[in-house]
Computed example of a mutant assay.
Amino acid sequence: MDDVLLSPREQRILAEMEEMLRRGETPDRRPRSPRPRPGGVRGLLLPAGVAVAFTASAVLMGLATTTGRPAFVWAFAGAWTTTLAGLTALVVRWCRRWAASRPDA
């Protein structure tokens, strides 16, 4: 088997995990995901985008109902679809955060 070189930090973490497993202990927390979680400005882009899409949908719905033009109706349909997709992504994100924050998870 090929040798894999680990950084000193990775070697220390691996040694701590091996020692804990030798003692028969289970880890207090799950290993962290290598994927960064959205935070800061990136974490606010989706809610802000959904808010903008919702506002655009409301305006286009008003224009579509008052004028009856097919262009406004189709624009409303597109904006509403985008809003629903963003809301679905937000609900999935919130559910995952809720599941990760539960102590028995």
Rank of each mutant, 00 (worst) to 15 (best):
L14C: 05
L14H: 05
L14R: 09
A15P: 00
A15G: 05
A15H: 03
A15Q: 06
A15Y: 00
E16L: 08
E16D: 07
E18L: 10
E18D: 11
E18M: 06
E19F: 00
E19Y: 03
L21A: 11
L21Q: 09
R23G: 06
G24W: 01
E25R: 14
T26H: 11
P27Y: 10
P27F: 11
D28H: 07
R29Q: 06
R30V: 00
R30L: 09
R32E: 10
S33Y: 03
S33W: 02
S33I: 03
P34C: 07
P36A: 10
P36I: 10
R37V: 12
R37W: 12
R37Q: 15
P38C: 02
G39E: 07
G39H: 08
V41W: 14
V41I: 15
L44H: 03
L45P: 03
P47E: 08
P47M: 06
A48V: 09
A48W: 10
A48R: 05
G49W: 10
G49D: 10
A51V: 13
A51W: 11
V52M: 10
A53V: 03
F54R: 01
F54A: 15
T55V: 12
A56K: 02
A56V: 15
A56L: 15
A56Y: 04
A56W: 03
S57P: 07
A58Y: 03
L60C: 02
M61N: 09
G62N: 11
A64N: 11
A64E: 04
T66G: 01
T67E: 00
G68T: 08
R69A: 15
P70R: 12
P70K: 14
A71Y: 07
A71F: 06
A71H: 05
V73Y: 06
V73E: 05
V73P: 00
W74L: 14
W74G: 04
A75V: 06
F76H: 13
F76Y: 12
A79K: 02
A79Q: 02
T81M: 14
T81Y: 06
T81S: 15
T82Y: 12
T83W: 09
T83S: 10
L84V: 04
A85L: 12
A85W: 13
A85G: 08
G86R: 11
T88A: 13
T88K: 08
A89V: 01
A89M: 08
L90A: 02
L90P: 00
L90S: 04
V92C: 05
V92H: 09
R93K: 13
R93P: 03
R93H: 13
W94H: 03
C95P: 04
C95H: 08
C95W: 13
W98Q: 05
W98R: 15
A99C: 09
A99S: 14
A100T: 07
A100E: 09
R102A: 11
R102M: 12
